[in-house]
């Protein structure tokens, strides 16, 4: 579904992503794990067109998207839940969801909004509230809900567990799993490697801009290197 080949991303003179290649197949949950600063978010931003790779190739649903503008990718079925949730603080909860469905018409949106409310009842209670007043967990749910509004084929999630209490992290991850079981392909970027690997099918380990390991999730959970570096012994 998504194929990334040899991308290189620079911030000025800093070579942040080095020759990275990976693939996500239809129906999978694939996770990129790695420490802070390993280049995980940079990779997602490059896939979604916010940053550009020097050379290499990114294709989505067999179509090259390496030079597509970010806003056009939503239409192709790619959705990106950015790091730090990035909900529109000044807009109401419902307006945030409407923005998520910007590319679709009102009828489709009102149906999808109901689906999102079914999945996140907390959000429904707060539909008329200004989104900036939501708690961290609610904001994450809104951000996830917003990303579903465009009826995406692939959702890329950047650190959905960041800054959340363990109970909420569990909840978010079980929702991600449900979404996947309902047919959405997921690319999950996480620092919380144990949680990510527990729901993923496959994983890639990223270290200072390079992919150093690739295996199925179970194998990574049992890998001594991974255990030592990311799973706390």
């Amino acid at each position: 579904m998504l194929k990334v080949e040899n991308i290189n991303v620079y911030y000025g003179a800093i070579h942040a992503v080095k020759n990275v290649s990976f693939e996500v197949a239809q129906g999978e949950i694939v996770t990129l794990i790695g420490a802070n600063g390993a280049g995980k978010s940079t990779i997602l931003k490059t896939v979604s067109g916010l940053l550009r790779s020097k050379g290499g190739r990114i294709s989505f649903l067999n179509e090259e998207i390496s030079s597509s503008e970010a806003y056009k990718l939503t239409q192709k079925g790619l959705s990106h839940v950015p790091e730090g949730r990035r909900i529109f603080q000044q807009l109401t909860v419902e307006e945030n969801l409407e923005m998520g469905g910007y590319i679709r018409n009102n009828r489709e949106n009102s149906r999808t909004i109901e689906d999102v409310y079914d999945r996140f009842p907390r959000i429904k209670e707060r539909r008329r509230q200004i989104a900036g007043t939501l708690s961290g967990g609610e904001q994450q749910m809104l951000s996830l809900g917003r990303s579903l509004m465009s009826a995406p084929r692939l959702v890329m999630m950047d650190e959905p567990s960041m800054g959340l209490a363990p109970v909420l992290v569990e909840q978010i991850f079980s929702i991600i799993k449900e979404l996947n079981e309902a047919g959405t392909t997921i690319l999950l970027v996480e620092q919380n490697a144990r949680m990510a690997l527990s729901i993923a099918h496959r994983g890639y380990v990223l270290e200072t801009g390079k992919i150093t390991l690739e295996a199925n999730a179970q194998a990574l959970l049992n890998n001594n290197e991974v255990k030592r570096a990311y799973l706390g012994g």
């Binding site: 979604s48 067109g49 916010l50 503008e69 970010a70 806003y71 056009k72 939503t74 239409q75 959705s79 990106h80 950015p82 990035r86 529109f88 603080q89 000044q90 807009l91 307006e95 409407e98 923005m99 998520g100 910007y102 590319i103 917003r146 465009s150």
Partner: peptide, 22 residues
């Protein structure tokens, strides 16, 4: 729709792009 897009862009233009807003 355009008005809401204006507000979204003025708040966070990067995320607005991710929503499919030109």
């Amino acid at each position: 729709r355009m008005g809401k897009a204006m507000r979204a862009v003025s708040e966070d233009y990067e995320t607005a792009q991710l929503m499919g807003i030109n």
